[in-house]
């Protein structure tokens, strides 16, 4: 047996509300990240990722409250990212109940912060989030972007992922900005290029549209797959994605109804 391929719904949170659209008919409040997180947990999500896209400090405080309330009700790992740039930022999120923290622009601005964070909390706590797109002028053919993919950071994406691991991150979240939102499938070449240079777990993100899109991402080297829109709109269910990954011969975690029943009766 081997460790299961993780299926991770991602919730973009702005001022305490899920954005990017949610279309679940069975929720009282489709914009509540806590309620949505609980639904994904029940459906067998292996982790949850919250990306805080709030610009204001009020928004960030609201997101912290969301993290706290989610950690009270959801007993699977919770990763939180957005605006992380210091040891203090990580400390606040971990205390609120995050298990892992994702860093992006903060690490581009000051790569040394990776070591500062991981020496304090361990490397398993820090995920390097890399927003990358195709760029023929970079050695690997991929470059890092910032500002939601609108600006080039002037860094080779594959070299940056490797640097992040050298600095101490315990995981890479690789998001294809070309594929993001297209539902045309993952950027498999990008996944394989990063996989070739890092030995930490790799989460593939961006482009998922059909269940058939997921197994190739795993075959290309992803240890976990992350998606937002397809889950929020109910286009795909977590279990369907797991069925497809399992059918391709990769191990997945099943939620055992018998255990759920027993736990519910405690």
């Amino acid at each position: 047996m081997a460790v299961a391929v993780r299926v991770i719904p991602c919730l973009d949170v702005h001022a305490g509300r899920v954005v990017k659209g949610v279309n679940f008919v069975d929720l009282r409040d489709a914009g509540d990240p806590v309620e949505l997180g609980a639904v994904y947990d029940a459906e067998g999500a292996d982790e949850l990722t919250f990306l805080d896209i709030s610009a204001s400090s009020d928004g960030r405080e609201t997101t912290l409250d969301v993290v706290r309330r989610t950690a009270e009700t959801v007993f699977i790992p919770l990763t939180v990212g957005g605006g992380v740039g210091s040891v203090a930022d990580v400390d606040v999120l971990l205390r609120a109940g995050a298990d892992k923290v994702a860093i992006n622009t903060g690490a581009i601005r000051r790569p040394e912060v990776i070591g500062e964070i991981t020496r304090r909390f361990g490397n398993q706590v820090l995920v390097l989030s890399v927003d990358a797109r195709r760029a023929p002028d970079q050695p690997s053919g991929f470059e890092v972007t910032t500002h939601g993919g609108r600006r080039a950071a002037g860094i080779d994406a594959v070299a940056w992922a490797r640097r992040g691991v050298e600095e101490g991150v315990g995981e890479i979240l690789l998001n294809s900005m070309d594929a993001d939102g297209t539902t045309a499938g993952f950027d498999l070449e990008m996944i394989a290029a990063v996989r070739a240079v890092v030995d930490v777990p790799l989460i593939a993100s961006g482009g998922a549209g059909r269940v058939e899109d997921f197994p190739p991402a795993v075959a290309a080297g992803a240890d976990a797959v992350l998606a937002a829109t397809v889950f929020h709109f109910g286009t795909l269910r977590v279990a369907d994605v797991k069925d497809a990954i399992a059918a391709a011969g990769h191990p997945v975690r099943r939620v055992a109804a018998s255990v759920a029943d027993r736990a519910g009766r405690l």
Partner: peptide, 11 residues
């Protein structure tokens, strides 16, 4: 192991 940390759901 070639993949560390060991991160995720295992038997």
């Amino acid at each position: 192991s070639e993949r560390l940390p060991h991160m995720g759901w295992n038997t």
